[in-house]
Amino acid sequence: NARWTTEEQLLAVQAIRKYGRDFQAISDVIGNKSVVQVKNFFVNYRRRFNIDEVLQEWEAEHGK
């Protein structure tokens, strides 16, 4: 399903906090979204969920 429920959106943001840009890991956490759908989520929801800021926090924690 290409549509993202609110629950899936929140799950994705939590997974980004945990896995950074590991699209496969994020896809696995959500369970019903492909890697391509996760990559599209990054692009389409970047502003709404401040994904750049979430990634900066992840990179700071993981030394990337």
Rank of each mutant, 00 (worst) to 15 (best):
A60E: 14
K33F: 05
E7N: 09
G31P: 13
E8M: 09
E7H: 08
W58G: 08
F49V: 11
V29A: 14
Q24I: 10
L55A: 05
F41P: 04
V54N: 05
W4I: 00
F41H: 01
A12L: 08
E61C: 06
T6P: 13
L11D: 08
I16A: 07
F49P: 05
V43K: 11
K64H: 15
T5S: 11
N32T: 15
N44E: 15
F41S: 01
L11S: 06
K39M: 05
E8K: 11
Q14V: 08
N44F: 09
V36T: 14
H62F: 07
R21Y: 11
I26C: 00
Q37N: 05
D28L: 07
V29P: 00
E61M: 09
Q56I: 09
D52T: 05
N1D: 13
N32Y: 05
N1E: 13
V13T: 03
E53F: 06
I26T: 01
Y19W: 07
G20F: 00
D52Q: 05
A2G: 09
G31T: 05
K18C: 06
K64V: 13
G20Y: 00
L11R: 13
K18T: 08
A60I: 15
K64I: 12
N40I: 06
D28T: 13
K39H: 05
R21W: 06
E53L: 12
V54E: 11
R17L: 02
D22P: 01
R3G: 12
D28H: 12
Q9E: 09
I26W: 00
T5M: 00
F42C: 07
R47W: 12
L55P: 07
Q14F: 04
H62Q: 14
V54D: 04
N1R: 05
E8V: 00
A2C: 14
R21I: 09
K39T: 03
A2R: 13
I16V: 02
I26M: 00
K33W: 09
R21L: 12
A60Q: 15
G63D: 09
V43W: 08
R17W: 01
Q24T: 10
K39C: 02
E61T: 13
W58R: 11
K64A: 15
L10W: 07
F42E: 00
V36L: 14
G63S: 10
R46T: 12
A60D: 08
R47I: 13
Q56D: 06
R46Q: 13
